[in-house]
Design a protein around this nucleic acid. Sequence first.
DNA 1: CTCCGGATTCGT
DNA 2: CGAATCCGGAGT
Length: 194
Amino acid sequence: MEFERPFADPGEMLPRSFYDRDAALVARELLGKWLIHIVAGVELIGRIVETEAYLGPHDLAAHSSEGLTPRTRVLFGPPGYAYVYLVYGLHWCMNVVTEREGNASAVLVRAVEPVQNLPGRTCGPGLLCRALGIDGRLNGHDLLSADFFIVAPPGGREAGETAAAPRVGVAYSGIWAQQLLRFYLKGNPFVSRP
DNA sequence: CTCCGGATTCGT
DNA sequence: CGAATCCGGAGT
C-alpha cells in the first residue's frame, strides 16, 4: 500500500548556499518559491510574490543599521535563518537572513499567494505571518528545518515576469529610499500594492 | 525609568 | 488620515 506523499517535499528545500548570496539577488529569486510552515501536522503553504532586500548596516533602511543589539542579533548571524520581529506593536514581519555571517543583510517577505491551508488575507508582511502562523517564536529558527522551509515549486514552474520598485515605508532613509530593492511578480493580484 | 517612533493594517 | 498597540533604543 502506498503512503500519501507530503504536498511539498522537505528534501527539495533550498540549500544554505541559496541564501549565502547578495540580498537583492536572493530577494528576486525567492519570487515564485513556496514558503512552508508545518503546524501540528498541517502544511501551511504560500507562494512568495513580493519581497524586499535590506543590504546591511550601511543601508539606512535596514534594522541592522542600528548595529548588533538583542533585537538584530539574528540578522548578524549566518544565512538561511528567519528574522521575525514585531512592528507597530501588532504585526509580525518575517525576513530571511542572507549573505555570510556578519553581513547582516536580509530579505523581507511582503506577500504570498495562498497555495495550501492559508486562511484569510496574505497580501502584506503582517497578514502573511498571521496566515502562516509565524510569530516571534520563530525568530532565529533555521529555514533548513523539517517544519519551516522554502522550496522551488514542484514541476519546475517558472515564476513569471518580475518587476522592481522602491521599498515600502522607508522614506526616512534618504538615498536608500529610492533604491529599487522591492521585487514582485508583475500583475499578481496578491502583491500588497500596485 | 520614560519617551519616541516604527520594514502595518483597518476603519473612518 | 488616524488609531491601535508594544518593543527596542536612546536619553534623563
